[in-house]
Design a protein around this nucleic acid. Structure first.
Lengths: 188, 188
DNA sequence: GTCTATAATCGGATAGAC
DNA sequence: GTCTATCCGATTATAGAC
């Protein structure tokens, strides 16, 4: 792997683990096996490197979400596939966790990929709920954009509960509860 | 207010705003209007002060949640009161945000109040769901502990969505979606 | 109890040699 | 492209005077 690649991957790992505030250029260099001069040759500084890392992480998240959401089946089945897909629950969401980073939220450029990813996800889920309504799979009492927000929030909040308790059980419970609520709102 | 009090309050503010990793003793001293010597006289160091701050924040959160959950009414009404209570949405949850702080999660003593608060909340909500089931207000197909986890996760995740988009709308949407799902699962 | 002095290490870079 | 040197302020304290 090239040096810029290793630097980006190292930054991705550290941002996930420790957040933006908790990640120093020095730590990135060590993880990447690159010197200071090397890092500052390829990137303007910490924000520049973080931007590259965040953009890539956001793209990957979108791709893996789409892999679950794009399957054939009823709305419930597709939402279920998304909710039950494999996750590194105790590490948290590599995109969502950035919202608790004050320096990321304060910087429009760093926040943009985070916002876009979560917005895209909500839109994608809303469309699926809408389809489910049209096909008579889901109650027309449900507002697609609202249910989509509930689904994404349950996942993001599930990470919080899991990390607080040090166990994935709370995440799984939240997801099962949501699926139960969706099940009794349709003809599935 | 006494100096120790001011130090604890300053720490609470900064932990909420910037997290544990992003909060320095110096910043605490400035916010509290106290000198270095003063801070180290009253507290052993940053972790000690953070522990006092986190414990107090956890207690307050419990009290304000109980104020909403303890009202008279159906299960749906009490859950609704909790979900719709006033919140500083864009600041996030002062307890939940700590789960994304690596140094808090790594320290059992700092993590304990966070875990206890969220566990208590889940238990409290589960009992309310259970009551609702027994009274015929909620479907017996719902598992109380799971629905409780879904409710807490929706709130915690709602903060994530709101902060990502810079608007409270996403939080409100998630909550309304959850309430709609709960509504169609009972006789309310 | 509070203040000032001191200190070792880290954070986030810039400059210039190779 | 990568390395080493250098820089200045921040971090997280400790020691001792007042």
């Amino acid at each position: 792997m090239s040096t810029p690649e290793r630097l980006i991957e190292a930054t991705r790992e550290l941002l996930w683990e420790r957040g933006y505030v908790g990640t120093s250029p020095k730590a990135i260099q060590q993880q990447a096996g690159a010197g200071q001069g090397s890092m500052y040759h390829h990137f303007a500084g910490k924000p520049d490197l973080a931007l590259a890392a965040i953009r890539r992480t956001a793209e990957e998240l979108r791709a893996s979400a789409e892999a679950a959401l794009g399957v054939e089946g009823t709305a419930y089945e597709r939402i279920s596939a998304y909710l039950l897909r494999e996750r590194d629950v105790l590490r948290g969401c590599p995109v969502g966790r950035l919202t608790m980073d004050p320096d990321v939220i304060a910087d429009d450029e760093l926040r943009a990929p985070v916002e876009e990813t979560l917005s895209w996800l909500r839109g994608r889920l809303a469309a699926i709920v809408q389809e489910g309504r049209e096909r008579g799979e889901l109650s027309t009492a449900l507002v697609p954009a609202e249910i989509a927000a509930t689904i994404v929030a349950t996942v993001q909040g599930g990470y919080v509960l899991a990390r607080a308790s040090g166990s994935t059980a709370a995440f799984d419970a939240g997801v099962r509860g949501l699926l139960a609520l969706l099940r009794t709102n349709g003809s599935n």
